[in-house]
Amino acid sequence: MKIVIASDHAGFSLKEEVKQFLQSKNHEILDLGTHNSDACDLSDYIYPAALAVAEGKAERGIFIDGVGYGSALIANKIYGVYAAVCQDPFCAKLARSHSNTNVLCIGAKIIGSAIALETIDSWMNTDFLSNTPKYKLRVDKVTTISEKHLKKLSEI
């Protein structure tokens, strides 16, 4: 699977570990930065990474900042991107199976690399329960909200 990853300076070190972990699982990685631990603005990296997911240049995204919420806030502004902040494997499994998220946001100041990698593994290996009517209906409702309030990239 092709996965875009991005971070700010707070998430840089963990992003590098995540990149190696995903490559060891034979995923193709599109790393949009940051490429060092110098202070930077999160949106300079997360926005292009979210666009990569929305444009189909990557199937999924993993974004890492200090807490995770900044990345999710930015990513969820883009039509077709459904990002969730997860700090443990259980939440990651639910974010995929119940909500069909295509972006995982992690806080490097919140969890260490071992639990982060377990969280990512859980998220990557969980499918959306599309055959379960209540989850499909919930996701369809969220998609309807997006269609009502967000512009498709083709309309921009």
Score class of each variant (00 low, 15 high):
2 K>V: 07
6 A>H: 04
6 A>I: 07
7 S>D: 00
7 S>R: 05
8 D>Y: 03
9 H>Q: 08
16 E>L: 10
16 E>T: 11
18 V>L: 13
19 K>P: 07
21 F>A: 05
25 K>A: 12
27 H>R: 09
28 E>Q: 13
31 D>Q: 07
33 G>V: 05
36 N>W: 11
37 S>M: 10
40 C>I: 11
42 L>T: 01
43 S>K: 09
45 Y>A: 01
45 Y>V: 00
48 P>A: 05
53 V>W: 02
58 A>N: 06
59 E>W: 04
59 E>P: 00
59 E>S: 10
63 F>Y: 08
64 I>Y: 00
70 G>Y: 05
70 G>V: 04
75 A>Q: 06
76 N>Q: 10
80 G>L: 04
85 V>A: 02
86 C>N: 02
87 Q>F: 11
87 Q>D: 13
88 D>M: 12
89 P>Y: 07
91 C>W: 10
91 C>F: 11
92 A>L: 07
97 S>R: 09
97 S>G: 10
99 S>N: 15
99 S>Y: 12
101 T>R: 02
101 T>V: 06
101 T>F: 00
104 L>M: 11
106 I>H: 00
106 I>C: 04
108 A>Y: 01
109 K>T: 05
110 I>W: 05
112 G>Y: 08
114 A>K: 15
117 L>E: 03
118 E>C: 09
119 T>L: 06
121 D>I: 01
125 N>V: 09
128 F>N: 00
129 L>N: 14
133 P>M: 08
139 V>Q: 10
145 I>V: 15
145 I>R: 13
148 K>C: 08
150 L>W: 12
150 L>M: 14
151 K>S: 15
152 K>E: 15
153 L>S: 12
154 S>I: 13
155 E>I: 04
